[in-house]
């Protein structure tokens, strides 16, 4: 094993063991210097997680969150130097983390928060304009077989819990979330989309979530709309299209990449 590998493993090891061969420039105890370095690495990564998952932290309290994050960092060290996107696997970690089991919605709240961070950093893409859609209307027979490319920042999260309400309650300006009206056991779906420079999180009906996911997966417009209507007779296609067009979520027309299931 290389010296570098020894060092990297010692940095994240549970026990503070100084890797062999370390020397301090001024002759001080390398084990003590290394312990400071270890602590800085760990704490900065935990801080990064706390920055990316503020609501998750609110839900469990800072002490619980930081202790959980410490275990996560040990088993999921960064794979990329981009700290901003660190911690994408936290939701899956939480699902398998017994002490958090009393909060069954915690993993999905974490999932939503990471989607928000990813949307923030997603690539720019110029949306189609009204004229493009008007032109599409000119050729109505081709409409059903057209696919839509969606904005890189767009994501849909379908949850068995009230993730959007929980998240939204924690956006209160005065910092005291009102959760009395939130029933976490109600299923909710979220649309995450960067509009301009703001990432928006909206609660959307289940059929709408399905429709947008189908478009994202490359299903044709007609097939995706039919599927949504079959699931939910009240599916409001004009409203959903209006929301996607106004939010700049449709960036291109394309050939469908997938057949209806």
């Amino acid at each position: 094993m290389s010296a570098q590998r020894h060092f990297a493993e010692a940095v994240l090891a549970a026990e503070p063991l100084c890797p062999p061969g370390l020397m301090a420039w001024n002759g001080s105890d390398p084990a003590r210097r290394f312990a400071v370095y270890r602590n800085n690495v760990m704490v900065s990564l935990i801080d990064a997680l706390a920055d990316s998952y503020p609501v998750t932290q609110d839900l469990v309290g800072e002490e619980f969150f930081r202790a959980m994050a410490r275990l996560f960092v040990r088993t999921h060290p960064p794979r990329s130097p981009v700290l901003a996107l660190y911690g994408a696997g936290l939701a899956e970690f939480i699902e398998g983390f017994a002490p958090a089991a009393v909060l069954p919605y915690l993993a999905d709240v974490a999932r939503l928060e990471m989607l928000r961070v990813q949307a923030w950093h997603a690539a720019d893409a110029a949306p189609l304009g009204l004229a493009d859609f008007a032109a599409l209307l000119e050729n109505a027979p081709a409409l059903a077989a057209t696919g839509f490319d969606l904005h890189p920042s767009l994501a849909v999260l379908r949850s068995a819990h009230a993730v959007v309400s929980l998240w939204a309650a924690h956006q209160a300006q005065d910092g005291t979330p009102d959760l009395t009206a939130v029933d976490p056991a109600l299923p909710e779906s979220a649309l995450v989309l960067r509009i301009g420079i703001d990432v928006e999180i909206r609660r959307i009906p289940c059929a709408t979530a399905q429709f947008i996911l189908h478009l994202q997966q490359g299903l044709a417009f007609g097939a995706a709309a039919q599927f949504a209507l079959d699931t939910e007779p009240a599916f409001d296609l004009p409203a959903v299209l209006g929301m996607l067009i106004c939010g700049g979520a449709i960036i291109n027309l394309c050939q469908p990449r997938r057949e209806p299931a």
Binding site: A140, L143, P238, A239, G242
Partner: peptide, 15 residues
């Protein structure tokens, strides 16, 4: 096809 076109038309009006 007509209902798809109608929906898109309505969405554009709103947009």
């Amino acid at each position: 096809t007509a209902s798809l076109a109608l929906a898109l038309g309505a969405a554009l009006t709103v947009a």
